[in-house]
Amino acid sequence: MEPLVKIRNVEVRYDNRNGGLVAISGVDLDIRQGEVVGIVGKSGCGKTTLLKVIAGLVRPTRGEVIYNGTHNGGGFRGIGMLFQSPLLLPWRTVLKNILLPIELRGEDVDSYVPRALELMERIGLKGFENSYPWELSGGMQQRVALCRALIHRPSLLLLDEPFSALDAITREDMWMLLQEVISYENYTAVLVTHDIREAVLLSDRVVVMGGRPGRVKAEVTIPFRRPRDLGLQYGREYNDYVAKIRSLLGD
Protein backbone atom coordinates (compact mmCIF):
# COMPACT_ATOMS: atom_id res chain seq x y z
CA MET A 1 0.00 0.00 0.00
CA GLU A 2 1.15 3.52 -0.80
CA PRO A 3 2.42 5.24 2.37
CA LEU A 4 0.34 8.12 3.74
CA VAL A 5 3.42 10.35 3.90
CA LYS A 6 6.59 9.89 1.88
CA ILE A 7 9.57 11.98 2.88
CA ARG A 8 12.33 11.92 0.29
CA ASN A 9 15.84 13.26 0.73
CA VAL A 10 14.63 16.21 2.76
CA GLU A 11 17.01 18.93 3.85
CA VAL A 12 16.12 21.98 5.93
CA ARG A 13 18.55 24.85 6.19
CA TYR A 14 17.82 27.75 8.52
CA ASP A 15 19.42 31.06 7.72
CA ASN A 16 20.76 32.83 10.74
CA ARG A 17 23.36 35.44 11.56
CA ASN A 18 26.23 32.95 11.35
CA GLY A 19 25.29 31.95 7.82
CA GLY A 20 23.25 28.79 7.48
CA LEU A 21 22.42 26.00 9.87
CA VAL A 22 21.47 22.66 8.36
CA ALA A 23 18.86 21.29 10.75
CA ILE A 24 18.16 18.04 8.91
CA SER A 25 19.70 16.54 5.81
CA GLY A 26 19.01 13.57 3.55
CA VAL A 27 16.02 12.36 5.53
CA ASP A 28 13.96 9.54 4.00
CA LEU A 29 10.95 8.27 5.85
CA ASP A 30 7.63 6.59 5.10
CA ILE A 31 4.63 6.85 7.32
CA ARG A 32 2.05 4.21 6.59
CA GLN A 33 -1.69 4.43 7.15
CA GLY A 34 -2.69 3.43 10.68
CA GLU A 35 0.85 3.35 11.96
CA VAL A 36 2.29 5.05 15.03
CA VAL A 37 5.83 6.22 14.33
CA GLY A 38 8.00 7.38 17.21
CA ILE A 39 10.88 9.72 16.48
CA VAL A 40 13.56 9.84 19.16
CA GLY A 41 16.77 11.79 19.27
CA LYS A 42 18.79 14.05 21.48
CA SER A 43 17.82 17.69 21.70
CA GLY A 44 18.98 19.63 18.67
CA CYS A 45 18.93 16.59 16.39
CA GLY A 46 16.22 18.10 14.22
CA LYS A 47 13.32 15.87 15.23
CA THR A 48 11.00 18.80 15.81
CA THR A 49 12.10 20.30 12.49
CA LEU A 50 11.19 17.04 10.77
CA LEU A 51 7.76 17.15 12.42
CA LYS A 52 7.29 20.74 11.25
CA VAL A 53 8.19 19.68 7.72
CA ILE A 54 5.52 16.99 7.87
CA ALA A 55 3.04 19.54 9.24
CA GLY A 56 3.86 21.92 6.41
CA LEU A 57 5.06 24.58 8.85
CA VAL A 58 8.60 24.46 7.48
CA ARG A 59 9.39 24.18 3.80
CA PRO A 60 12.23 21.81 2.99
CA THR A 61 15.13 23.52 1.21
CA ARG A 62 15.77 20.30 -0.67
CA GLY A 63 13.84 17.09 -1.28
CA GLU A 64 10.11 16.60 -1.07
CA VAL A 65 7.22 15.49 1.08
CA ILE A 66 4.49 13.57 -0.68
CA TYR A 67 1.26 13.40 1.21
CA ASN A 68 -1.29 10.81 0.12
CA GLY A 69 0.27 10.76 -3.34
CA THR A 70 0.18 14.54 -3.84
CA HIS A 71 3.12 16.91 -3.65
CA ASN A 72 2.50 19.59 -1.13
CA GLY A 73 4.71 22.43 -0.04
CA GLY A 74 2.82 23.47 3.05
CA GLY A 75 -0.37 23.43 5.07
CA PHE A 76 -1.74 19.91 4.67
CA ARG A 77 -5.39 19.72 5.46
CA GLY A 78 -6.39 17.16 7.98
CA ILE A 79 -3.55 17.46 10.43
CA GLY A 80 -4.05 17.40 14.17
CA MET A 81 -1.25 18.68 16.35
CA LEU A 82 -0.39 18.39 20.00
CA PHE A 83 2.49 20.37 21.48
CA GLN A 84 4.38 20.27 24.74
CA SER A 85 2.28 23.09 26.15
CA PRO A 86 -1.51 22.92 25.77
CA LEU A 87 -1.71 26.35 24.04
CA LEU A 88 -5.33 26.83 24.98
CA LEU A 89 -7.00 30.19 24.53
CA PRO A 90 -7.81 31.44 28.06
CA TRP A 91 -10.84 33.48 26.99
CA ARG A 92 -12.58 30.42 25.57
CA THR A 93 -14.33 27.67 27.47
CA VAL A 94 -13.00 24.12 27.17
CA LEU A 95 -15.67 23.23 24.62
CA LYS A 96 -14.95 26.29 22.47
CA ASN A 97 -11.23 25.56 22.61
CA ILE A 98 -11.87 22.04 21.38
CA LEU A 99 -14.04 23.34 18.53
CA LEU A 100 -11.43 25.86 17.38
CA PRO A 101 -10.09 23.76 14.45
CA ILE A 102 -13.65 23.39 13.14
CA GLU A 103 -14.13 27.16 13.32
CA LEU A 104 -10.83 27.73 11.52
CA ARG A 105 -11.85 25.33 8.77
CA GLY A 106 -15.08 27.25 8.34
CA GLU A 107 -17.24 24.23 9.03
CA ASP A 108 -20.51 24.15 10.95
CA VAL A 109 -19.40 24.29 14.57
CA ASP A 110 -22.73 23.19 16.08
CA SER A 111 -22.73 19.92 14.20
CA TYR A 112 -19.44 18.99 15.88
CA VAL A 113 -20.67 19.58 19.44
CA PRO A 114 -21.87 15.97 19.93
CA ARG A 115 -18.51 14.67 18.70
CA ALA A 116 -16.69 17.08 21.03
CA LEU A 117 -18.74 15.88 24.00
CA GLU A 118 -18.12 12.25 23.07
CA LEU A 119 -14.37 12.85 22.79
CA MET A 120 -14.37 14.68 26.10
CA GLU A 121 -16.09 11.77 27.78
CA ARG A 122 -13.62 9.31 26.27
CA ILE A 123 -10.66 11.41 27.37
CA GLY A 124 -11.97 12.02 30.87
CA LEU A 125 -13.20 15.58 30.56
CA LYS A 126 -16.90 14.96 30.98
CA GLY A 127 -18.61 17.87 32.71
CA PHE A 128 -15.79 20.36 32.06
CA GLU A 129 -17.16 21.77 28.79
CA ASN A 130 -18.04 25.14 30.30
CA SER A 131 -14.93 25.45 32.45
CA TYR A 132 -12.10 27.76 31.48
CA PRO A 133 -8.63 26.34 30.80
CA TRP A 134 -7.08 28.11 33.78
CA GLU A 135 -9.51 26.32 36.08
CA LEU A 136 -7.93 22.98 35.09
CA SER A 137 -4.68 21.26 36.09
CA GLY A 138 -1.82 20.90 33.60
CA GLY A 139 -2.75 17.30 32.82
CA MET A 140 -6.39 18.21 32.25
CA GLN A 141 -5.36 21.09 29.99
CA GLN A 142 -3.30 18.69 27.89
CA ARG A 143 -6.36 16.43 27.62
CA VAL A 144 -8.29 19.40 26.24
CA ALA A 145 -5.48 19.99 23.73
CA LEU A 146 -5.71 16.32 22.72
CA CYS A 147 -9.46 16.64 22.11
CA ARG A 148 -8.80 19.75 20.04
CA ALA A 149 -6.20 17.88 17.98
CA LEU A 150 -8.72 15.12 17.25
CA ILE A 151 -11.99 16.99 16.80
CA HIS A 152 -11.79 17.17 12.99
CA ARG A 153 -10.74 13.49 12.62
CA PRO A 154 -7.32 14.36 11.21
CA SER A 155 -5.81 11.87 8.82
CA LEU A 156 -2.47 12.47 10.51
CA LEU A 157 -1.83 13.20 14.18
CA LEU A 158 1.43 14.98 14.97
CA LEU A 159 2.66 14.93 18.56
CA ASP A 160 5.59 17.13 19.54
CA GLU A 161 6.84 15.98 22.95
CA PRO A 162 3.28 16.22 24.19
CA PHE A 163 3.79 14.77 27.64
CA SER A 164 7.21 16.05 28.63
CA ALA A 165 5.76 18.83 30.78
CA LEU A 166 3.64 16.44 32.83
CA ASP A 167 4.51 14.55 36.00
CA ALA A 168 5.34 10.85 35.68
CA ILE A 169 2.00 9.50 36.85
CA THR A 170 -0.08 11.87 34.73
CA ARG A 171 2.16 11.02 31.80
CA GLU A 172 1.38 7.31 32.09
CA ASP A 173 -2.34 8.11 32.22
CA MET A 174 -1.95 10.17 29.08
CA TRP A 175 -0.07 7.36 27.31
CA MET A 176 -2.97 5.02 27.88
CA LEU A 177 -5.53 7.64 26.82
CA LEU A 178 -3.63 8.45 23.67
CA GLN A 179 -3.24 4.79 22.81
CA GLU A 180 -6.95 4.27 23.33
CA VAL A 181 -8.07 7.10 21.04
CA ILE A 182 -5.50 6.16 18.41
CA SER A 183 -6.81 2.59 18.31
CA TYR A 184 -10.44 3.58 18.58
CA GLU A 185 -10.41 5.94 15.60
CA ASN A 186 -7.51 4.21 13.86
CA TYR A 187 -5.25 7.25 13.59
CA THR A 188 -1.91 7.50 11.89
CA ALA A 189 0.41 9.29 14.30
CA VAL A 190 3.93 10.64 14.51
CA LEU A 191 5.25 11.02 18.03
CA VAL A 192 8.38 13.11 18.57
CA THR A 193 9.89 12.51 21.99
CA HIS A 194 13.16 12.34 23.88
CA ASP A 195 11.69 9.70 26.16
CA ILE A 196 12.72 6.31 24.73
CA ARG A 197 10.38 4.41 27.07
CA GLU A 198 7.44 6.47 25.81
CA ALA A 199 8.41 5.86 22.18
CA VAL A 200 8.74 2.09 22.67
CA LEU A 201 5.50 1.81 24.59
CA LEU A 202 3.40 3.73 22.06
CA SER A 203 4.99 3.19 18.64
CA ASP A 204 4.85 0.48 16.00
CA ARG A 205 8.18 1.72 14.75
CA VAL A 206 10.82 3.94 16.33
CA VAL A 207 12.95 6.18 14.15
CA VAL A 208 16.28 7.04 15.76
CA MET A 209 17.73 10.39 14.70
CA GLY A 210 21.30 11.56 14.98
CA GLY A 211 22.42 15.14 15.07
CA ARG A 212 24.37 17.85 13.24
CA PRO A 213 22.93 17.72 10.69
CA GLY A 214 19.88 15.74 11.73
CA ARG A 215 19.44 12.48 9.88
CA VAL A 216 17.78 9.10 10.35
CA LYS A 217 20.27 6.75 12.00
CA ALA A 218 18.12 3.66 12.36
CA GLU A 219 14.57 2.34 12.42
CA VAL A 220 13.45 -0.20 14.98
CA THR A 221 10.17 -2.08 14.62
CA ILE A 222 8.39 -2.67 17.92
CA PRO A 223 6.35 -5.84 17.43
CA PHE A 224 4.10 -5.76 20.51
CA ARG A 225 0.44 -5.88 19.60
CA ARG A 226 -1.56 -2.75 20.43
CA PRO A 227 -3.23 -1.90 22.73
CA ARG A 228 -0.38 -2.33 25.12
CA ASP A 229 -0.42 -2.44 28.87
CA LEU A 230 1.59 -0.22 31.21
CA GLY A 231 2.91 -3.42 32.75
CA LEU A 232 4.83 -4.05 29.55
CA GLN A 233 7.42 -1.61 30.86
CA TYR A 234 8.55 -4.07 33.48
CA GLY A 235 9.07 -6.91 31.02
CA ARG A 236 12.40 -8.07 29.66
CA GLU A 237 11.62 -7.71 25.94
CA TYR A 238 10.43 -4.12 26.29
CA ASN A 239 13.56 -3.16 28.15
CA ASP A 240 15.72 -4.85 25.53
CA TYR A 241 14.16 -2.53 22.94
CA VAL A 242 14.73 0.48 25.16
CA ALA A 243 18.37 -0.53 25.64
CA LYS A 244 18.85 -1.14 21.94
CA ILE A 245 17.49 2.27 21.00
CA ARG A 246 19.54 3.92 23.72
CA SER A 247 22.70 2.41 22.29
CA LEU A 248 21.69 3.42 18.75
CA LEU A 249 21.39 7.01 19.95
CA GLY A 250 25.06 6.92 20.85
CA ASP A 251 26.90 8.95 23.41
Partner: peptide, 28 residues
Protein backbone atom coordinates in the same frame (compact mmCIF):
# COMPACT_ATOMS: atom_id res chain seq x y z
CA UNK B 1 3.78 33.15 20.97
CA UNK B 2 5.49 31.31 18.15
CA UNK B 3 4.15 27.93 19.22
CA UNK B 4 0.58 29.20 19.36
CA UNK B 5 0.97 30.74 15.94
CA UNK B 6 2.34 27.47 14.55
CA UNK B 7 -0.55 25.56 16.04
CA UNK B 8 -3.04 27.91 14.39
CA UNK B 9 -1.29 27.60 11.03
CA UNK B 10 -1.18 23.80 11.37
CA UNK B 11 -4.94 23.88 11.89
CA UNK B 12 -5.23 25.88 8.69
CA UNK B 13 -5.89 29.36 10.12
CA UNK B 14 -5.63 32.32 7.76
CA UNK B 15 -4.01 35.59 8.75
CA UNK B 16 -7.34 37.31 9.30
CA UNK B 17 -8.57 34.37 11.37
CA UNK B 18 -5.52 34.63 13.62
CA UNK B 19 -6.27 38.33 14.01
CA UNK B 20 -9.97 37.94 14.79
CA UNK B 21 -9.90 34.76 16.87
CA UNK B 22 -6.63 35.25 18.75
CA UNK B 23 -4.93 38.64 18.41
CA UNK B 24 -7.94 40.82 19.18
CA UNK B 25 -9.30 38.81 22.13
CA UNK B 26 -5.77 38.56 23.48
CA UNK B 27 -5.35 42.34 23.30
CA UNK B 28 -8.69 43.10 24.99
Amino acid sequence: ERELWEMLVAFGASKSQVLVKVAIPRAT
